[in-house]
Computed example of a mutant assay.
Amino acid sequence: MIELKNDELQVKINEHGAELTSVKSVDDQIEYMWQADPKFWGRHAPVLFPIVGRLKDDQYTVNGQTYRMTQHGFARDMDFMVIEHEDDHAVFQLEASDETREKFPFDFTLQVTFTLDAHMLSVHYTVTNPSGDVTLPFSIGGHPAFNVPLEPGNGDFSDYSVTVAPKKAYQQIPLVGPYNDVKHEKTLNLTTPMVLDHDLFNQDALILDLDHVETTLMLSTRLNDHGVALTLQDAPYVGIWSPYPKRAPFVCLEPWWGIADNVDSDGDFIHKMSIHTAGPKESFNVGFQIRFF
């Protein structure tokens, strides 16, 4: 377990999956991150790579060859190397191996960088294509889960809300089972805060089309001054999720550079909706920030 710390926050990150597992306030020891109770969901904040969401029948093709890969990819279940570590900074790295090539026939280097600055934790993804002649296709995303309520015994799920800025009506991409149905986008009015209710998630995650516009989602309550604010600069989508019908005491705010297969997907990875590419020797850089208050 790798620890970062400053005068405001104590942070823990597991080398397994480069997964953020704990963010605590130094002053009052409030734990912001969901603690992975398997009764509800046994993860904290997995890294989603090289896919976000589910593939049709958990399989896809590249150059006519079929490969199998389960939801959200394999990075979340692999051990990363720690290549840098200071009090306020750590870099985790995963490289392609014989094991990954069985599921994903491409070379890659994935780095996840965590940087702590006062009340802010920045998370940065760098996907590098080491190949000299093959283009690397992929998706990537985050899945951080936050305790609701933040203080045990102080409030309930419905006492919290998610405020989205810019305040406007967003296009929402519905899910049909685990697959996206972008042809039947809905409109979700977020000009006012969205009060949390478990029934919001009866069709799985709420997926907002951000169109790469800088967006902040704030999880907060009228009962106290504590919450989190997640900011994305250049993401196509964000997911808001809590497991249903379980009445789980957490909600996820998920920055996505990718999305589950479309209901009409042909299975060819290159045709996959919201796939990104890194050319030979190129890198792809994205990230997000979480402010804890």
Rank of each mutant, 00 (worst) to 15 (best):
S220W: 06
V164K: 06
G142N: 12
Q171C: 07
L188W: 06
W41M: 02
V127G: 05
V91C: 14
L219H: 06
V134P: 02
P130L: 03
R76L: 01
K246D: 15
F138I: 00
N262P: 01
P178R: 02
H16I: 14
A118P: 12
Q233C: 10
E151D: 13
A36E: 07
K186H: 05
S22Q: 12
A96F: 11
T109G: 02
Q203Y: 04
D264S: 10
L253W: 11
W241H: 01
N6G: 14
L219M: 09
F292R: 02
S122G: 11
H89F: 15
D264Y: 05
Q111D: 13
L217H: 03
A45V: 00
F284I: 05
D199Y: 00
D77A: 13
F146C: 05
H16Q: 15
P174S: 01
K272W: 03
T221N: 07
G227K: 10
L136T: 01
G64A: 05
I140P: 02
G64W: 10
R54A: 09
N147M: 06
N262L: 02
Y237K: 05
M69C: 01
Y179V: 06
W241L: 08
R54H: 07
D266I: 04
I207W: 08
V228A: 09
R101H: 12
K281C: 13
H276D: 11
P178D: 08
T231C: 09
N14Q: 15
K186C: 06
D204H: 05
R222S: 15
I259G: 04
A118K: 14
H271E: 09
L223M: 04
K12F: 15
G132E: 13
S25M: 01
L253E: 08
S22W: 06
N180V: 15
L20C: 07
S25K: 09
L230G: 07
V251K: 07
V238E: 04
E19W: 07
E31V: 00
V11E: 10
T109Y: 09
M273Y: 15
H89A: 07
Y244C: 08
T100V: 09
F288R: 12
D7C: 14
L150C: 12
M1D: 08
H89D: 08
V11Y: 13
Y244N: 12
G53V: 06
D88A: 10
P46V: 06
D197W: 01
T221W: 01
S265K: 07
P38Q: 10
S122H: 14
R76E: 11
H124S: 13
P193Q: 01
T70V: 04
L219G: 04
G42F: 06
